[in-house]
């Protein structure tokens, strides 16, 4: 496992150079979204449609959903370009493989790094939410690990896929037909109950919906109303993450051995 920490160290050193852009994605971007959608548009929502949100203001409704969705987007990004870069462009993974590091160290090191990044992003986001007065319960802090878990349920399987790709062409499809629709239809901006009933079961398949619903339950303190459902969310997210992690180790190993 020592090998894994070297991979982490490598990513951390790389990260110092991209710090500026991460400030933007992890702090400014959610702040702007919360302001525009939560407060600007939220004013109009609160005037007419408050009832559908169970008595919450739109800002309170939006904030936890946006946390999970932001983390998902960052996770998807971390799982695509850095992976294909390490295997095909800068070939840093091949360079690591030429040392005593194993493919497993490299695969897991990158996933653990992603988890750390997601933890940073969701912590910052949570601070923003508190500053906006959109947190209703001290449980808001538990939202951080849940958001990270949601993110990893995306990062792990997508990393496995990225390791099989030699060009980024298909990433476009993932983002356009996967990440963006999930961002828009997983209950982030409106309760999925507003969707036509035949579409709702599709939302249940979305890991993001599990994450959003769970995060919202925790952050808003409505967790205890349906503990069984909440537990099911956690099980689903953990299961996807474990399978995805295993798949990443397999695909990264295969690519490194084939060269």
């Amino acid at each position: 496992m020592a090998g894994l920490t070297y991979v982490l160290e490598h990513r951390a050193v790389q990260y110092r150079r991209t710090f500026r852009s991460s400030v933007f994605t992890s702090f400014l971007s959610p702040l702007l979204f919360l302001t525009a959608m939560g407060i600007g548009l939220g004013g109009y929502v609160d005037r007419s449609g408050g009832a559908a949100l169970g008595g919450l203001t739109y800002l309170q409704f939006l904030a936890p959903g946006l946390l999970a969705a932001t983390v998902m987007q960052s996770a998807a990004f971390e799982a695509t370009f850095p992976i294909i870069g390490g295997l095909n462009w800068q070939r840093t993974f091949h360079a690591m493989y030429a040392t005593p590091l194993s493919p497993r160290d490299i695969a897991l090191g990158n996933l653990v790094w992603t988890a750390l990044r997601l933890a940073m992003i969701s912590s910052v986001f949570t601070l923003v939410v508190i500053a906006f007065g959109a947190a209703h319960s001290p449980l808001v802090v538990v939202g951080i690990p849940i958001a990270v878990l949601t993110g990893m349920s995306f990062a792990a399987p997508i990393s496995a896929f990225s390791a099989t790709q030699r060009t980024p062409n298909r990433f476009n499809v993932i983002f356009r037909f996967g990440i963006t629709p999930l961002f828009l239809f997983s209950g982030t901006f409106f309760p999925i109950e507003s969707l036509p009933s035949f579409i709702q079961p599709i939302a249940w398949l979305s890991p993001l919906w599990h994450g959003v619903d769970l995060t919202r339950g925790l952050v808003l303190g409505t967790f205890s109303q349906n503990p069984g459902l909440m537990l099911a969310h956690i099980v689903v997210l953990i299961a996807i993450t474990i399978v995805g992690t295993w798949a990443t180790v397999v695909t990264v190993e295969r690519r490194l051995i084939r060269g």
Binding site: Y44, S48, L184, F190
Partner: peptide
């Protein structure tokens, strides 16, 4: 996708502007 989500999904909560 944006039109369906924001326009219709969220639009149902907003009403007229």
């Amino acid at each position: 996708f944006y039109l369906l989500s924001i326009g219709f999904g969220l639009g149902a909560l907003v009403g007229n502007v």
